[in-house]
Amino acid sequence: MGNRTEFWTSLTPNDPREAPAEAARLEAEGWDGALMVDSQCMFPEVWAYLTLAAQGTSRIKLATGVTNPITRHPSVTAAAAASLQVVSDGRAVLGIGRGDSALAYVGASPMAIGAFEHYLEVLQTYLRGEEVDLADAGAMVVNAKVGFDNLAIGSGPKGSSLKWLKDYGMPKVPIESYATGPKAIASSARVAETVILGLAAEINRVAWGVEIARTAAAGVGQDVGVGCAVVVMPHEDVRLARDLARPTVASMARFSAMNNKVIGPATPAQAETLLKLAEVYDMNRHGATAVQTEVLPDEFVDQFGIVGSVDTCVDRIREFVDLGLQRMTFWTPYVKTPDLAHSYDLLVNEVLPKVRAG
């Protein structure tokens, strides 16, 4: 299987005051990392939340899952991530994507791929403690008048950098970019340390994305880690497992047809479902049981999620591990019910130990 695959999960409490205890519990359960959503209209401020989580833990890695390039200037995002790196003693990871719910809830759409790649390059420059061209940095400030021509100052900064960063001697914060389409995967692989594939748990599609990422990284002479984000829902009753997984499967699968066109390999049946999902998706019920869950056939849920018995889930996860993935992130639903709690217990106490033993 090569290098050990890391297994991450998501932080779920909305109340940031619960973050230290929640992160400590995940750490005690053996997770390698935990991430928190950055969607300001749906959840509390992500960097405050992760800072509190860092103060309650000592080992687990902590990441945004994910931030976006539009609601924050790259210097602001870099400073926040670097601050978390200091507070956590080197456990911060900067997860970023082109934008989804954080933008949808303020009436905006994801950033264009070319602009996103440049944003990643500027972000990396800040995180390395290097200087960004001042005109470039100024051009990325929304609605700002660039330059100092009308200000009463004798001289201004020649470049833009995190001047305070060198005082701490911390390792650089790694960037992981979440991507779905081939252009986004390739551009991310050229700049970020890790690409997290937003292709759900359809193994053929994930294998396709892995190949794109590795080829693009090799083209610029660098290695890239590749991971994927999936939902895993073990349960003795496969029908119940499917129903528990459906809302998250819908949210994940939607990325593959956001522009009313199916991205990546898909069977005719899969393509039909993806297009129907894109047509009916209700962002007001993002991640919840709604009209989008009603259009997902059982077969689709089985393919785009990891559901069923403990052994079924173990076998499915091992297929992804065998692709040489650096990481798998298992999204945990935000709603807590006895059935979901039982499924989570099976995941932590039976599925993951068996996968790791194998």
Rank of each mutant, 00 (worst) to 15 (best):
L296G: 10
K163M: 01
S256N: 14
R327Y: 02
F148C: 04
R316E: 14
N204E: 11
L35M: 13
R98W: 04
M170I: 05
K183P: 02
R72K: 15
P69R: 03
P297V: 08
P74N: 11
A192I: 00
S155P: 01
A241E: 01
W31C: 03
V87W: 04
G181P: 04
L134E: 03
G169N: 10
G198V: 02
P171H: 06
E279V: 05
V93I: 14
K145V: 13
G219P: 04
N284A: 07
R205E: 10
W208C: 08
L127N: 09
D298W: 06
L165W: 03
A82K: 06
N68Y: 15
S109K: 15
R356I: 08
M140S: 06
L123W: 08
V230C: 12
M252L: 11
N68P: 14
D223C: 00
L165A: 08
A21G: 11
K354V: 02
P74V: 13
A79H: 05
A81D: 13
V226P: 12
A79N: 13
M170R: 12
R205N: 14
T64E: 10
V226F: 06
F43W: 14
N259S: 13
V106T: 15
E45I: 07
G114W: 01
R242K: 03
D282N: 12
E299H: 04
E279G: 06
T337K: 03
K354S: 03
Q124S: 01
V224L: 02
L244N: 02
G221K: 05
T267G: 13
A341W: 02
G147D: 12
A102T: 13
R128E: 10
L94D: 10
T273M: 14
V106G: 10
T337N: 02
D345S: 14
A266L: 09
D223R: 07
H286L: 07
G97W: 06
G33A: 09
D167V: 01
Y126H: 12
Q222V: 04
V355G: 01
F7S: 05
D38A: 05
K145A: 14
I306R: 10
G156A: 13
T77H: 06
D15W: 15
P297F: 08
G129L: 08
G227M: 09
